Amino acid sequence: MANDKLTPKQEKFCVEYLVDLNATQAAIRAGYSEKTAEATASRLLRNVKVQTRIQELRSEYFTKAIASAAEVEAFLSKTIRGDLEEEVIVVEGSGEGYSEARIVKKQVSARDRIKAAELMGKRHQLFTEKVKVDSIVPVVIKGEDDLEP
């Protein structure tokens, strides 16, 4: 192909389409005519280059949005060690029936640390007495034809 690149409008359509998966509105937001947006959107969604680009953008989004196993383990480790703080609202009396609320940072609770340790332990199979066996066992099925006379 002479031109494997998308036009700027097609690229904008791909980005806008992923906002709400409404092709007609994506075409309008990308700068195509409102009068022909529905037909244009339909044509764009059948275009292989546009389909490929939409899939690439979705992949990039999910790669950035979804935590990796390493990130989850790092978060659980920080929680277990007490290196993680959370914000809580504290209400304190300020005299003569008045109280004030303020936000303070505190270490995560012991219960949260225990839960993180439990999840990490499950991840590393620390609490199981079952033995995991990976083997192939042949299965022989005999039918009437296999029986001796």
Rank of each mutant, 00 (worst) to 15 (best):
M1E: 14
A2K: 12
A2V: 12
N3W: 05
N3A: 14
K5G: 04
L6G: 15
L6S: 15
L6T: 15
T7Y: 06
T7M: 06
K9V: 08
K9P: 00
K9H: 13
Q10G: 04
E11M: 14
F13W: 08
V15P: 02
E16F: 05
E16I: 08
Y17C: 08
Y17H: 15
L18C: 11
V19P: 01
V19S: 12
L21C: 05
L21M: 08
N22L: 03
Q25L: 05
Q25P: 00
A27Y: 07
R29F: 00
R29E: 00
Y32E: 10
S33V: 00
T36D: 07
A37N: 09
A37C: 07
E38I: 01
T40M: 09
T40G: 02
S42I: 01
R43G: 01
L44H: 06
V48E: 13
K49P: 13
Q51H: 07
T52E: 12
T52A: 12
I54E: 01
I54P: 01
I54D: 00
Q55C: 00
E56I: 07
L57I: 14
R58P: 03
S59W: 02
S59R: 11
E60M: 10
T63K: 07
K64I: 04
A65N: 14
I66W: 03
I66S: 11
I66H: 10
A67S: 12
S68K: 13
S68E: 12
S68T: 15
S68Q: 13
A70R: 13
A70C: 06
A70L: 12
E71T: 13
E71V: 06
V72D: 03
E73R: 14
A74E: 07
A74L: 06
F75T: 13
F75A: 15
F75W: 02
S77G: 10
S77P: 02
K78T: 12
K78H: 06
G82A: 08
G82E: 05
D83Q: 06
L84C: 07
L84N: 09
L84S: 13
E85H: 11
E85M: 13
E86T: 08
E86L: 10
V88H: 12
I89P: 08
V90L: 04
V90C: 01
V90Q: 14
E92S: 11
G93N: 15
G95N: 13
G95I: 03
E96D: 12
E96G: 14
G97Y: 13
Y98P: 00
S99I: 03
S99N: 11
E100G: 04
A101F: 09
V104F: 09
K105V: 02
K106Q: 09
K106Y: 01
Q107S: 09
S109C: 05
S109A: 12
A110P: 00
R111C: 00
R111W: 03
R113C: 02
I114A: 03
I114G: 00
K115H: 04
E118L: 05
L119Y: 04
L119H: 02
G121N: 09
R123M: 09
L126P: 00
V131F: 02
V133S: 03
V133D: 01
S135W: 02
I136D: 02
V139P: 08
V140P: 02
V140R: 10
I141S: 14
G143V: 04
E144W: 03
D145Y: 10
D146V: 05
D146H: 12
E148W: 13
E148K: 15
E148M: 11
P149V: 06
